[in-house]
Simulated assay, not measured.
Amino acid sequence: MSQLPSKRPRVDGSDDATEHDGDAAVRIPPVQRSEKFWIEDGNVILHVEDTQFRVHRSMLTRHSTIFKDVFSVPPPSSEQARDPVLEGCPVVKLSDRAGDMEQILSIFYDNASFLDLREDIPIGRLAAMLRLGKKYDIAYLRDEALKRFRSEFPTTLEAFDASYGDTRGPSIDYDSPSDLDDISTIICLSQEHGLPSIMPAACFNLVYYIPPEKILDEAVLPQELRNRCIMGQDHLIRTVHNILFDWTESESFMSPDHCTGDHLDGYDRKKVLRELNDGLWLADDGSVWCFSPTLPGNVQETLSNLCASCSESVISYYHAARKEVWQELPIFFGFRGWEDPDLKDFDS
């Protein structure tokens, strides 16, 4: 790779260009040369949004045969217009995002240090890998992004449990564990790029800790998806409430007939149910059940004071509830169940 200059000027001067649409002047952003990818011996210029990248045609076609068609130049006798030329290089305009293109070029040119598959990959990079990997048929980028998204937002309860703790493999690097925009971006990606199978788990990931008023104000999500998430959150809350109510009515939940200790009385049973309610239902901060494979910490402490039979009863009911909720998860968010054809991905 040739030495990159320390600073790059704008392509068409320092002032914004102006076009007139009727009586209104429309400000057009100035075209910038990429600070990172304006390579002196590059032989093609990619014009993406307001940024131009001067790179090597051979580098692009090495990773994607589709670029060969993108760079095909009509013969001189053709009536088709040729690509414009700048500094002896054809300028090819692409309808991608400049940030995505920089991410992908960084992988092409600096693969070993930029894309370590043993580590979590930042969400912005994964989004670019999915968008451009799918569009330009760059299989190893597309498939790696799909693997990470599907691992983080699976379709089975067993895979969901495997995503917890130290046993999980490399996945997604979020800006913060509760970053609303990150999860919203993933939900939008799932809809826009034919990856609906991850939507139920992704929507659940959003609604279990985000109160409705924040979801309503979320700018990344379109209104239809915001509505779907809020309705799904309400459905989840009502379902968990009904499950907890059924436990209070069940004679087999911590049944005195099977108790082998002297601790069990009405107070103990009510205490466990109250703590389960605090851990599984709507919390003071507006969050809902996080669906952890382990019981809430306060319940775990209480179980240590129960006999084996009562403790086993609580654990059994808890995991039965998880299975019940998981089966209904797609329904919460507008699908007809896990077998819904609308949950089939583009590569299914």
Rank of each mutant, 00 (worst) to 15 (best):
I66F: 06
L60K: 04
P122R: 10
S77M: 09
K68D: 11
K7M: 00
G261S: 15
A201N: 03
Y164N: 12
S64Y: 03
I243A: 07
A159R: 11
G169T: 10
F114P: 07
E119Y: 00
G22C: 10
L130M: 13
W326G: 05
Q32M: 13
D345M: 08
P170A: 06
K7Q: 07
D179H: 13
S163G: 10
E328Y: 07
S163E: 05
D96I: 07
A162R: 02
P90K: 14
I230R: 06
I186D: 01
R54V: 03
Q103T: 05
L295Q: 11
D69C: 01
F333I: 05
L221E: 05
M254N: 08
W281T: 07
R336Y: 01
Y164M: 11
G261N: 13
A25M: 11
R238N: 12
A321I: 02
Y318N: 07
E312I: 01
R118W: 00
S348W: 15
L280F: 04
W247H: 07
S197E: 04
I186K: 03
Y164T: 11
Y164E: 08
S72T: 09
H241Y: 10
A24V: 12
K7T: 02
D265Y: 07
D246A: 13
P9L: 00
P330V: 08
H47W: 10
F160H: 10
E40Y: 08
N298M: 14
L264H: 12
Q32D: 14
A98G: 09
P212N: 14
V48M: 11
A321W: 02
A320L: 05
D345L: 05
D345F: 06
C203M: 13
D16R: 10
V299Q: 03
P9S: 04
M101I: 14
T185S: 06
T61G: 01
V299S: 01
D246L: 11
A17D: 12
P74G: 09
T155E: 06
E251H: 12
R131L: 10
T18M: 06
M199G: 01
C310S: 08
F114S: 11
C290R: 12
N298Y: 13
E79C: 14
V31H: 10
A159H: 05
Q32N: 15
Q103H: 14
E224H: 13
